[in-house]
Design a binder for these strands. Structure first.
Lengths: 93, 93
DNA sequence: CGCAGCACTTTTATTTTACAAGTATGACCC
DNA sequence: GGGTCATACTTGTAAAATAAAAGTGCTGCG
């Protein structure tokens, strides 16, 4: 399996990269992500679980029963790829 | 819609980026892509059609009834994003 | 004409995603 | 200490994307 294929196994599903992009601005809570992305809530929950076990992000406990999601170093390392894709879309003819 | 979301609309489906990656090595025929990628043939046909209308690749007629698929300039511009993703997967801990 | 290779299409099953509604937990208020 | 509220999910079901397998339509060749 090529490197690209390996990457897509982790962040190739529909919302994964968008979640990471959102978290590049800093840790955010579940409801914030949901509002910003407009992702279905069950998809968001599933992706967050997958990305957590993949070591891309982690849960950051806050007060009460709330928590925030934050990128690990491995998650932050996706910045280059995300900006590259964003730039590509932006440089439309 | 963010730039990233726009990019994923075009190359966010499961095989799209892998097809482009394969074509970065130069134009290839349908059967070659199929063998290299191991993609289902109906998916391959559908993605090629979509990527063609998106201006990422074009059909290059060869002899007989055969043709090759080649990247447009817009397709070639995806190289940065693809290598960034590949590098990310390769730098695993 | 019959056959073989290539580039697909069609059909059907399985998985993924979307949409809507419901549940669990704890804080806050009285 | 019971009711209400916000947050973070889960559950159930429908729609869509993907996978797997077989079939179709061209050439060109002998």
């Amino acid at each position: 399996m090529s490197d690209l294929a390996a990457a897509l196994e982790i962040v190739g599903s529909r919302w994964a990269l968008r979640i990471v992009e959102q978290l590049l601005d800093g840790p955010q809570r579940y409801g914030d992500l949901q509002r910003e992305l407009g992702a279905p809530t069950n998809m968001l929950a599933m992706r967050l679980r997958e990305l957590e076990t993949a070591g891309v992000l982690y849960r950051l406990p806050l007060k009460h029963n709330t928590r925030a999601y934050a990128l690990t170093e491995r998650g932050l390392a996706l910045r280059d790829a995300i900006t590259a894709l964003g730039r590509w879309a932006a440089e439309q003819a």
